[in-house]
Design a protein around this nucleic acid. Structure first.
Lengths: 204, 204
DNA sequence: GTCTATACGATGATAGAC
DNA sequence: GTCTATCATCGTATAGAC
């Protein structure tokens, strides 16, 4: 780790004025996710707006100045956190979509529901609320939702073809409304998970 | 209207030190809803937290001092607004539940979806987000959701009995999962409506 | 890059006249 | 009950040392 860090610095010096200093970028990205992760934990406890930069500073162990050297402003950080949470949920789905023995829709929904992390569900729902007024967040949410629905579509289509022995063309067509419903039911489960779970008290 | 107002004041004077001055209470409640309505419009545009008391003051035409004489603080006002919006959505449902020709679940969902007001949907979704961290709001959301699900349960039960000619006892049992699904799909539609609709730009 | 200290603005809430 | 004017607090963002 320490060796890697020193190598990184060396590489950065070597590449000054040259092409992309990859390793330095990778480390910078690592810091960014470290901050974003801390932000997500704060958001999960106190919500998007009730979390101050000072809170994230305390949670991440970094100073406010350091945070602002990685993110332009708070909105930028909120966007990054929203991306992270939503993308993580999409990844869970991608896993099932690539399965060679596709589960039926009910089973698919059950697995997705079982994989919900309450803390991330809270931030996800907070993101929905923010999306109603912030165009940037809105785009992130809509895009992620569309991508997830598309993956569900692929998953259901594969199930129709491989298990129910439909022809590919009609299978894709019939899969669309089913994917829409599974997505809707999943979102509802996400909401329930976010509300059901006891939100641990903040130390304010 | 003016006559009613003067009558109200007279009644209040007559009942000073006596029993409940009903009409005065009614007028006070009217002011409260007037403020709450203005708050809902502001929330719909700018969100729960980005709306200042000054915004609500401008929207309602009342001063900040006047607002604080009707609501203890902003959190109290947010609670009132949340109650109002959620209750209004429940009322739409109650209407269909009382119908003597109960619609089938798909039709029920379609009607509920068609009755969605985008502005209120936005505040509703914002309420969900707030509910993830604010226990008071959480209770309001959960209670309202439970009541709505119960009404859906009644509605579906009535449909099973009157249209599908089930016996009452098994009908109630079979209606439960159906009501759960309709509720979930409705909430998803509410989310879509809140995100789909272009949020008009604020005048900040 | 990271820290401490701070400036500046915004906002929730109150005081006191009418 | 309603207004205007004001206070005090909090939080974002920056400056400058190391």
């Amino acid at each position: 780790m320490i060796l890697l860090a020193s190598l990184t610095k060396g590489a950065a010096i070597l590449f000054v004025g040259g092409v992309v200093p990859r390793l330095t970028d990778a480390r910078k990205e690592l810091r960014r996710t470290q901050i974003a992760d801390a932000a997500v934990r704060c958001f999960s406890r106190n919500g998007l707006e009730r979390t101050s930069i000072a809170d994230i500073s305390a949670e991440s162990g970094l100073s406010t100045g350091s945070i602002y050297s990685h993110y332009r402003n708070k909105a930028d950080l909120v966007r990054a956190a929203a991306c992270e949470v939503l993308a993580k949920r999409a990844d869970v789905l991608r896993e099932y979509a690539a399965l060679d023995a596709p589960p039926d829709p009910d089973e698919l929904l059950a697995r997705l529901t079982a994989a919900i992390d309450p803390a991330e569900a809270r931030v996800g729902v907070q993101t929905w609320g923010e999306a109603t007024t912030d165009p940037d967040i809105r785009d992130i949410v809509v895009d992620t939702t569309d991508r997830m629905r598309a993956m569900l579509h692929d998953c259901v289509t594969a199930w129709l073809i491989k298990v129910k022995h439909h022809e590919p063309a009609p299978a894709r067509e019939r899969a669309a409304p089913i994917a829409h419903r599974v997505m809707a039911l999943y979102q509802a489960e996400l909401l329930y998970a976010a509300l059901r779970t006891p939100t641990e008290e903040t130390a304010s």
